[in-house]
Computed example of a mutant assay.
Amino acid sequence: MARSRKARESDIDEIALALPRTVKVPGWGGLPSYQVSKKFFVGYRSPRPDAVDAETGQRLTDVLVFRVPDEGDKLALVQGDGPWFTTPHFDGYNAVLLRLAHLGTLTRGELAEVIEDAWRSQAPKTVVKKWEAERGGH
Rank of each mutant, 00 (worst) to 15 (best):
M1S: 14
R3P: 01
R3E: 13
S4P: 00
E9I: 10
T22F: 01
K24R: 15
G27L: 02
W28P: 07
G30D: 02
G30S: 03
L31T: 11
Y34S: 04
Q35E: 14
V36W: 03
S37C: 11
K38H: 12
F40T: 10
G43R: 05
Y44N: 03
P49T: 12
A51R: 09
E55D: 14
T61E: 15
T61P: 00
D62P: 06
L64F: 09
L64H: 06
V65A: 14
V65T: 14
V65G: 00
F66M: 08
D70C: 07
E71Y: 04
G72R: 13
D73Y: 09
A76Y: 03
L77N: 05
V78F: 06
Q79A: 12
G80A: 10
D81S: 15
G82A: 10
W84F: 14
P88N: 05
P88I: 04
H89W: 08
F90A: 08
D91F: 13
G92N: 07
N94F: 12
V96K: 03
H102E: 15
L103R: 05
L103P: 07
T105Q: 15
R108W: 08
E113T: 14
E113I: 09
V114N: 06
A118G: 13
A123T: 04
P124S: 06
K125F: 00
V127C: 00
V128E: 06
W131F: 15
E132F: 10
E134K: 14
E134T: 05
G136K: 11
G136I: 09
G137C: 06
H138E: 11
